[in-house]
């Protein structure tokens, strides 16, 4: 079983990203369970969402305390003191940022993919909705899900012009993500 934790802010699409990832994994025959945790649904407030996937049915209904992967949709959330808490050894991070790390931010973090998803979203969609771009980056960095599956899942939520723009985001995320590895 793999456990992925999404960190974002209300309005950035963290919950949707977690959901889309779940859909793309199901398309590949996986079992998934994905849910967000928030109190009041307010734009800008920090939001956490969880996605688990496995080959067999997922029984756990708890929040994710030992993620295999973190997806951070807002670079400002890197400052969260608890962001890396419980990260599994050999952990992965997918980050929306214009800057690449100069040092390893956490000893359990072994693999990071950094992409300027905000800029890509602004260029392609016209506003700061970095979620779909990060899913492309996720597919490229982890290899846990195929690009085509991710693109198909985006089609479940968007149509027409806006779908086309978001698919560009996914593709650019997939292609433009910078991969960093630590020993």
């Amino acid at each position: 079983m793999k456990e992925i934790r999404f960190h974002g802010r209300g309005g950035q699409g963290a919950v949707l990203a977690a959901r889309m990832l779940a859909i793309s994994l199901v398309a590949e025959g996986k079992c998934v369970a994905s849910f967000p945790m928030y109190g009041f649904e307010r734009r800008g407030a920090p939001v956490v969402a969880f996605t688990r996937f496995d080959d067999k049915q997922i029984m756990e209904k708890t929040q994710i305390y030992n993620p295999d992967c973190l997806v951070v949709i807002d670079p400002g959330l890197l400052k969260l003191p608890t962001l890396f808490t419980g990260l599994n050894p050999n952990g992965t991070l997918i980050l929306n940022s214009s800057k690449v790390f100069d040092k390893q931010p956490n000893e359990n973090l072994k693999l990071a993919g950094v992409v300027n998803a905000t800029q890509i979203a602004v260029e392609e969609v016209g506003r700061d909705v970095p979620n779909t771009c990060l899913l492309g980056a996720f597919a490229a960095v982890t290899g846990w899900v195929g690009l085509q599956s991710v693109m198909a899942s985006v089609g479940e939520y968007f149509g027409g012009e806006i779908l086309r723009k978001n698919l560009r985001c996914v593709e650019r995320g997939y292609n433009e993500v910078k991969v960093i590895k630590w020993q």
């Binding site: 959901r19 779940a22 079992c31 998934v32 369970a33 994905s34 849910f35 945790m37 209904k61």
Partner: peptide
């Protein structure tokens, strides 16, 4: 069914 933990839980 439990709110939040199941109400918002997306599964296949």
């Amino acid at each position: 069914y439990d709110g939040f933990y199941i109400s918002y839980l997306a599964e296949g």
